[in-house]
Amino acid sequence: MEIIYGTWHWSVSGFLIGMTMLILIYFGKSFGMSSNLRTLCSMAGAGKFSDFFKMDWREQKWSLVIVLGAIVGGFIAFHFLSNGSGVNLNPDTITQLQSLGIDAPNGKLLPDALFSIETLQSPKGFAILLIGGLLIGFGTRYAGGCTSGHAISGLSNLQLPSLVAVIGFFIGGILMAHFLLPIIFKTT
């Protein structure tokens, strides 16, 4: 049962993610998670302040339902399909994280240094999560998609704009992981 309760192999995971996209295409829809953020803004009345949010959000109900399902899926996988073995990291990565004061997984999906309730209550911890969210929301809408819309859907359809966007994801990601994270976490 390790095959289900442990970490799923990358080939199985990747194949199933590719299939998710193809199933959505079969149902006449396109695969993209970040557009739900726009729909939610629109539902909250953001159309009063920007035409970008003047849309009939009811047409996007199917996508919000996917989000709802994804939340339930996360709950099921976490509570019923896990043996608590957690993320198996490269020992070098663990040493490197230690030098930044970031705890090793030890059965967790996320480090306490970023996501524990104590971190959340510190101004710095709160700011990191909020700024991360702002960059994700602003960046994905500006680029017109995220990992699902560009890296999976767009590249699967051999779209040049998606390749440019994915190159951007990596420029930003490498900049953050190699140069900014050490500055952000060293000072604590």
């Binding site: 991360g132 702002l134 994700i136 500006y142 680029a143 017109g144 560009h150 994801f169 930003g172 490498i174």
Partner: peptide, 12 residues
């Protein structure tokens, strides 16, 4: 846009 998202993705 991609770079900004990448910064956020690697941060959180």
């Amino acid at each position: 846009g991609g770079t900004l998202f990448g910064l956020g993705w690697a941060l959180v």
